[in-house]
Design a protein around this nucleic acid. Structure first.
Lengths: 341, 341
DNA sequence: CAACTTTTGAGGTACGCACCTCAGAAATTG
DNA sequence: CAATTTCTGAGGTGCGTACCTCAAAAGTTG
């Protein structure tokens, strides 16, 4: 009992190869009754299209654009590397990928960059961009132009994007909160820091973090969020001050970028290792922090998985085949010193 | 600039298609100098074989056997389901998979079962089996017969298997130890339980757990390992006794199967939620335990990843192409209530 | 029933590669 | 130098599918 082919179906249904082909590819010119007949046979024989043969015959090319913020960001760098790796011709066939960088904080420039992409030259696009109405509209326009669109890492919830590949920020914040609570049995204060509260991710993480902490660990008090506005010096200075002025400080939750500065400031204040530091995203800095004990835990997502998932989803969207949801769900991972990958 | 094909290479190297084919597939009958010339062109043009076209032409079939212990085990059940899902024709082409079950604790029966497999009917085998000299030898014989062999979940370190797909048990134990230490700031006693210390995994987990606890958290004292020998009643009884007799108990580390009984016993003793319970493997029981707060953390590995990785590695072993190590490394995951997948 | 439209069939070519044969060229040997 | 042996080229077929054309069959309409 070998795998059925289109020939088997044609023979079995008593029609020609051409008709089977028309049914399979939903082309016009087949009577309803014949379609039903052919599909019955397809179902009965358990025929599944050989996608590699189909792609070969069709000379299929998947032309994708990856739109990522420009540096410097260790996280984006690792993500970019993962995307490059996952789209290398050695592991993925028939892929033509273009990498596009966008300015981090200028919505209009982002929109211009997106508009400069010729939709006819792409089949799909994966985009990581801050949520603004302008960006959302630009994404919607790409979708209207017929591209498959997935958002990466941070979502654009009210856009028409097909899929979001990333983790739930509220749940990530809740996870950080639960860890912080479990790590600190006694009472004390928690410093929460980020580079910017303008990003939806930071706001949501804080939301989740606070919800768990106030609900389950009332003995821990959260200080107002400290923002660095991407200014390294400011971050170092603020943290130094907080440590000096707050003797009850037992933990630090770093929600955004700038972990290098936070670790540096803690080290400078002699507080490294004494406080429970929880940060996001596995990068060279946070890995070092875990190894040295200066960071207690890192909440992260597997960038390799993120990259491969984006590619798989874009491909299946182009193929209009069903998405294997279980495989695409990106997990919120907790990394300690002992389970560093 | 399109993707180079064998034709391009033939033209560029000034040889015929047949010669290119001989070089590519390492067939005999080509002079060394010609081989070098062709390979230089291959390298220069950046040719990569179109594996799907190649497989199509070759009528390649990957015939794999998955050898797993027979039930009842929630973990093996979820793994089996993941394997089925990952090898469904919808997601993986040219795969013919046979599932084989082996008795859990009878090495000779396992060996008989392995010997009954006709090596000529398979290209590769993934096996999860307890480590004994007999099993190791049987695996070596399959390897000698020309099969690709990977061990799954628990390794057979001194066998000739090609690859191990799973996590490092010592590191998993260390991770559990670190979590247990961080979760318990004050002093107290830790109960360590497993169904059997005869399995290498349990021994290694205990090793890692103890190393971290004694090294970094000397205020926590580990009690001797409690073994249930797969007897549910025994487990319930022992735990009940320990809880009654040990008022200083602050944590429970469950290294093996039998989490259902452990949770049940804790609940019966009114200790559920008061103790830090750390268990292994995400199953219906441990998920419920996390949700209810009766289990504080679960150390696990992503069975979906495990399954897909096993398939990928077996395939690349058959193709004799390089393995993409980064993708195949199975991570030790930490799951709390808030990051349940 | 003729004139028409819609369906269907037969057949071809192509995709990129594997694998085969056979004849002839080139290199090696005696 | 001839006789061998070793390489190489030309050509073919097949894998399962896509997509095309043209003619013939079936169905519909007035």
């Amino acid at each position: 009992m070998t795998k059925p082919t289109v020939h088997d179906i044609a023979k079995e249904a008593g029609v020609s190869l051409a008709t089977v082909d028309r049914v399979l590819n939903a082309r016009a010119g087949v009577r309803e009754t014949t379609i039903a007949k052919v599909q019955a046979v397809i179902h009965r024989l358990g025929y599944v299209r050989d996608t590699s043969a189909a792609n070969l015959a069709r000379q299929r090319q998947y032309r994708f654009a990856f739109v990522l913020p420009e540096g410097p960001s260790q996280f984006v760098d690792t993500l970019r590397a993962a995307l490059k790796e996952a789209s290398s011709p050695l592991v993925a066939d028939r892929l033509v990928v273009q990498h596009v960088t966008i300015p981090t904080h200028d919505p209009h420039a982002i929109v211009r960059r997106l508009q400069s992409l010729n939709p006819a030259r792409f089949d799909g696009i994966a985009i990581m961009a801050p949520e603004t109405p302008q960006v959302r509209d630009a994404v919607d326009r790409l979708k209207e132009a017929g591209l498959a669109v997935v958002t990466l890492v941070s979502d654009l919830p009210n856009s028409t994007r097909d899929h979001f590949i990333g983790t739930n920020s509220i749940a990530a914040g809740r996870t950080a909160g639960l860890l912080m609570g479990r790590f600190n049995g006694g009472s004390g204060e928690i410093l929460v820091a980020t580079n910017s509260l303008r990003s939806r991710d930071s706001v949501e993480r804080r939301l989740g973090f606070d919800a768990v902490l106030s609900g389950e660990f009332p003995h821990l008090r959260c200080l107002p969020t400290v923002e660095s506005y991407d200014d390294p010096n400011r971050m170092v200075a603020v943290i130094r001050d907080v440590i000096a002025l707050r003797p009850d400080l037992v933990g630090v939750y770093s929600m955004g970028a700038g972990n290098t500065q936070i670790v540096e400031a803690l080290r400078g204040a002699g507080a490294a290792g004494r406080l429970s530091v929880i940060a996001h995203e596995l990068t060279p800095t946070t890995k070092d922090g875990l190894r040295s004990g200066e960071i207690a835990a890192v909440i992260t997502q597997n960038v390799g998985h993120l990259a491969r998932s984006a590619l798989r989803v874009l491909r299946t969207l182009c193929d209009k085949t069903p998405i294997f949801e279980a495989q695409e769900r990106v997990r919120i991972e907790i990394v300690l010193r002992e389970n560093l990958p």
